[in-house]
Design a protein around this nucleic acid. Structure first.
Lengths: 190, 190
DNA sequence: TGGGCGCAAACGTGATCACATATCAGCGCG
DNA sequence: CGCGCTGATATGTGATCACGTTTGCGCCCA
């Protein structure tokens, strides 16, 4: 999810087992679960690797985010109290620092923490799980793209999200979240 | 997904293995995959069973359907030719027959076939997979509910969907699909 | 008769193994 | 010099087993 493993990297069950000090059986279970969630892809011979997403697939996954996440944010809005907004702003500050360091996985991690912190308030576990599944699928590819771009602009959409939360403005919040989610896609087109 | 197994039913790995003539290992993999997809729930002791969904969870899953499926339908709309519409109408006729027979799993299966046939045209595999995951989670509970209700009215929303497809009316299609998806939820409230 | 209690059966977990298959390096041929 | 073949190595699959834990049934006592 955090993009710590590059897209297209192949792995073996025995290798994973050795890496974590377990036998093949738990490694197999973990791998098969990640395959079921779309985080890893299974070749016809059973070999496993991180998927290399096509542009169409990325667009599709971004579209799913653009559907789910505004709804999650809207559901969180009535439950968003001051402490939550403070927390979001603090995470936002961290994101600014991470960007300066050009730390792509760190940026992804902090960015997702911002979204997850907000969506946790929505009290919608199935919807959140679904969003995290999408993040999991996008992780390696997104991190690769961010790493290539070396962007230096802080996330202005997050500020808009926080502002809409403070104002209790649901339509504005939906628009801000959708814009934040779609921004990553636009970056790909360049 | 088709609701052939009742909610809350517990299963054992050795039992599943014996049922399908394999050992525990493949049974474990299959079960863990279904757990990852949310179709089965894993107790703290590792025992597995079909989940009994709370009303909140059902509402949430229906909301996800209401988000994803209109989008899938809209993406399928430009690609929907006459043969597809014929196929949908034929499935619709089947649904009418199944309802007369009070065959709840058959109804679920035919209903999902209607939706899947349409959504396959959307050329959006990730989004379709996500919708199917939701169906998988709802399957047992929905079938249970349908079985209790013994409804006799044919699905009028499907007719609206077909009409909107014929007319090339995207907003109307989105509304019709959303109404069809939400209908199941309304039934629960009674 | 109802409610704890204990024990045996059953369960999940993780390890190991045999086997069929895929992968890749090296080599020989064109 | 490039291409295909071949064999050794490595991989996934499914079975089986030992072990610690949970479960559920029967029994005992109040």
């Amino acid at each position: 999810m955090h993009g710590e493993v590059k897209p297209g990297l192949a792995m073996t069950l025995r290798g994973i087992g050795k890496e974590f000090g377990v036998s093949m059986t738990p490694a197999r279970e973990a791998v098969r679960r990640l395959v079921a969630e779309g985080a890893l892809s299974l070749s016809s011979s059973g070999r496993v690797s991180t998927p290399e997403l096509s542009n169409d697939r990325i667009e599709e996954l971004a579209a799913i985010r653009a559907l789910l996440e505004p709804e999650l944010a809207a559901r969180a809005l009535p439950r968003a109290h001051l402490a939550l907004i403070d927390r979001l702003q603090s995470i936002n500050a961290t994101i600014g620092q991470v960007i300066e360091r050009h730390d792509a996985p760190g940026y992804i991690r902090a960015n997702l923490e911002f979204h997850r912190t907000l969506y946790l308030r929505a009290q919608a576990p199935a919807m959140l799980a679904m969003a995290e599944t999408v993040w999991l699928q996008l992780g390696p590819t997104m991190c690769d793209l961010y790493g290539r771009l070396n962007r230096t602009t802080p996330p202005q959409h997050h500020r808009l999200i926080v502002a809409a939360l403070k104002a209790g403005d649901e339509p504005g919040l939906r628009v801000a979240v959708r814009a934040d989610v779609t921004q990553g896609l636009r970056m790909l087109a360049t």
